[in-house]
């Protein structure tokens, strides 16, 4: 059980924060289909930072500081990368889907181009093991699933998620940002700077996606940057729609998806009640079945809930002052 909770969180955390990244962009009126690309770019820059710190022997023993710096750098890189999207979508009023697609292609290209020059192969592996895991093996059984073998990123992301959700729903800044995604003309008429709000939304989105990207590779792929995040950005996009552009829905959706993903990754060694019988393995279904399930579940849920789905009204439409 402990193992299942911990592994579920490993997949849930990046999905949760990247889906929230999508909410910030779309609530401000910009379709951010580039989440996957921004994740890739953030994960690459974060990995490069760790690579440099490890080769230079900085913070030798304190791996948590290395992790924190890498997360910060990844978020910064994601924010800067997303400016490309904001510039084309807000200043030049370009098609946002095309801009996002370009970013999705640009990120792996830049990553692999540089990685191959630095390391002579298609992946940037870390010189030393990451050691980002926090272990408290002496904990009692109630707290153990949440404090043993955990990553500091888990707590940070949950805190960020709560704070940003409150910011988006309970403060005037959040209200203004959301107004720009629903009816920018109305927002403008009461003195809100639509362009600035949309820049803010997309930049927060970029920072969160970059952060999520690095957390994903640091917790599942021992920090190796390969120019891919296995489509997690697109999954996060699906979870955002699944969660109806709302934080609570997203948290629920990423937990569900995290659990299904975790079962897919670990079904062969999964022993839920600890009786030594690997129930799922004995069913004899191949890994493909468990990989399929999350996507089919999302499709079914979308099919049944689509009538209630409400996207921000003005998303994807460049703001034009002259329009009513």
């Amino acid at each position: 059980m402990t193992f299942l909770i911990q592994q579920t969180l490993v997949y849930t955390i990046p999905l949760m924060i990247v889906a929230l990244a999508g909410v910030f962009a779309e609530r401000s009126g910009i379709i951010n289909i580039a989440l996957d690309g921004i994740m890739i770019f953030g994960s690459f820059v974060g990995a490069l930072a760790v690579y440099i710190m490890q080769t230079a022997g900085m913070f030798g023993d304190n791996t948590q500081i290395v992790f924190l710096i890498a997360m910060l750098v990844a978020a910064l890189a994601g924010a800067l990368f997303s400016l490309l999207l904001s510039f084309s979508a807000i200043n030049l009023k370009a098609d946002q889907t095309i801009g996002g697609t370009a970013l999705n292609m640009l990120a792996p290209a830049v990553t692999l181009l540089i990685v191959k020059i630095v390391s002579m192969q298609d992946r940037l592996s870390m010189p030393k093991a990451l050691g980002f895991i926090i272990s408290n093996p002496d904990m009692n059984d109630v707290f153990k699933p949440f404090f043993d073998k955990m990553f500091i990123s888990t707590y940070i992301v949950i805190a960020l998620f709560v704070v940003l959700s409150i910011l988006l729903y309970k403060t005037k800044y959040g209200l203004r940002l959301r107004a720009c995604g629903e009816h920018p003309q109305a927002a403008d008429s009461v003195g809100i700077n639509v362009a600035r709000m949309r820049y803010l939304g997309t930049t927060i989105s970029g920072a969160l996606a970059g952060l999520g990207g690095y957390i994903y590779i640091a917790t599942t792929a021992s920090g190796t940057a390969e120019g891919t995040v296995a489509g997690m950005g697109f999954l996060a996009l699906a979870i955002m729609i699944f969660g109806n552009w709302k934080p609570v829905g997203i948290a629920f959706g990423s937990l569900l998806f995290g659990l299904l993903k975790c079962i897919g990754a670990t079904y062969a060694s999964l022993d839920i009640n600890g009786d030594g019988i690997f129930a799922l393995k004995e069913l004899g279904l191949p890994i493909y079945f468990y990989n399929l399930v999350p996507y089919v579940v999302v499709l079914l849920v979308l099919a049944f809930t689509s009538k209630k789905s409400r996207a921000p009204k003005a998303e994807g439409i460049p703001y034009d002052k002259g329009q009513r």
Binding site: L84, S88, L92, A94, D95, I98, G99, T101, A102, L103, M105, L106, P108, A109, V110, L112, L113, K116, I117
Partner: peptide, 19 residues
């Protein structure tokens, strides 16, 4: 250099194609 330069060029072209 390596072959990813061509991917980069195509991505940049698409970015401009948005305009």
């Amino acid at each position: 250099y390596n072959e990813y330069v061509s991917d980069l060029i195509i991505a940049v072209i698409i970015y401009f194609a948005g305009f």
